[in-house]
Amino acid sequence: MENEVVTLAHGAGGKQTSELIKKVFAKHFSNPEFTADDAAVLSLGDGKIAMSTDGFIVSPFEFKGGNIGKLSICGTVNDLACMGAKPEYMTCAFVIEEGFPLAKLEEIADAMEKTAAKVGVKIVAGDTKVAGKGQVDKVFITTTGVGRIIPGVKTSGALAKPGDCVIVTGDIGRHGCTILLARENLGIDADVTSDCAPLWDAVKAMTDATHDIHVIRDATRGGVGTVLYEIAAESNVGVELDSANIPVEGAVSGVCGMLGLDPLYLANEGTMVVIAPESEKDRILDALHKTDHTKKAAVIGKITEEMPGKVVLTTKIGTKSMLPEPGGELLPRIC
């Protein structure tokens, strides 16, 4: 496999396609429900299910802390988990650029296998397309997942209530910072690793501790700031953050300082915003602190009646300042 690459023939649907599937995907995703048929037949039992789909086009496809394969599992798993759903089954669709090394594809599949196994989600069907050179950037993955919602848990971006506390499950901005440094040739060397991780464990631990949680949302593209603006609008409430309590890793704030960026707008791939009644705060934090990936969870603010739709920061000098509404491309500011 060392020097083999993906060719257009791999995507033609014939023998080479099935070989590729057998050699790379079936090897990693194999389970009793895994199907060669057009669709997998699954049993979900009673109760409500959640379903989600997401496309991944990260460039570069490998980064410190993961690759597009790991990311494609985490993204969909976390979307399900945020609805209080245990991820059960997933499907994945690949669009691969002609000439892509098979060994790299194998690494991607391997990361998907490991991540899925950690969560206990099964990959049951897939699709492979090969596009001509230059038609896609190396490899794109779309994953779809279904999960069973834990009875008694109901979360939504529209359920935040004044008086609730706002929690982040970890230090913020690491994925966005990692990708920025890898993508742009900025000459900055910083020991930053993407937070890319599946968060079902963390959601399970929280919901085992209490069902009284109003909002869980993973703070992916646009970062915590963007997610809080979404929630403020959907719930028609204000959000008040204490800037001193927002956890940011030293190197991330160093990079942000160099480039004039705010970590509140940098993407996360393993960090959620949780909003719950003040009375549940300690139970939730305890549960998060005992789970991998969420040991740095912290309360960063509260939900208010004032300034509905806005996010306000308490500053270092004790005044209040509005967090600018996110929008547009993140551009480093130098002068």
């Binding site: 742009e184 000459g187 480093p332 500011r333 130098i334 002068c335």
Partner: peptide, 30 residues
């Protein structure tokens, strides 16, 4: 260019627009 300048409107277009039309515009720190 420094990132700051990319979205500044010109008479007809900004550098971001020029990039969409195929211009090679790169952001640098220094």
């Amino acid at each position: 260019t420094f990132g700051d300048l990319i979205r500044v409107p010109g008479t007809k277009m900004s550098l971001a627009d020029a990039r969409r039309q195929g211009g090679d515009i790169r952001m640098v720190y220094s």
